[in-house]
């Protein structure tokens, strides 16, 4: 997860997209699917937190 600290929102979203496609693909190995699902959901949370941060920051600036 240390890797995620330096991750930008855009990079996180790109990784998420990639994971969603992999998870949906029936050809994808199921051995590691649990980890991939966890990672995808982590990325969703990470992106939501990022957006929450952006929103708070812009709300503070605009008011």
């Amino acid at each position: 997860m240390a890797k995620k600290d330096s991750l930008t929102y855009k990079q996180a979203l790109a990784q998420l997209e990639e994971l969603v496609v992999r998870i949906e693909n029936p050809e994808t190995d199921l051995e590691n699917i649990a980890e991939e699902v966890k990672k995808a959901l982590d990325l969703v949370k990470f992106c939501r937190d990022q957006i929450k941060g952006f929103r708070e920051e812009t709300d503070k600036l605009l008011n």
């Binding site: 969603v20 949906e24 699902v37 969703v44």
Partner: peptide, 15 residues
């Protein structure tokens, strides 16, 4: 978009 991704991940996962 994130909601959609999340739903897709959950529905595609066998868990």
């Amino acid at each position: 978009l994130l909601d959609i991704y999340e739903r897709r991940v959950i529905s595609a996962s066998p868990f």
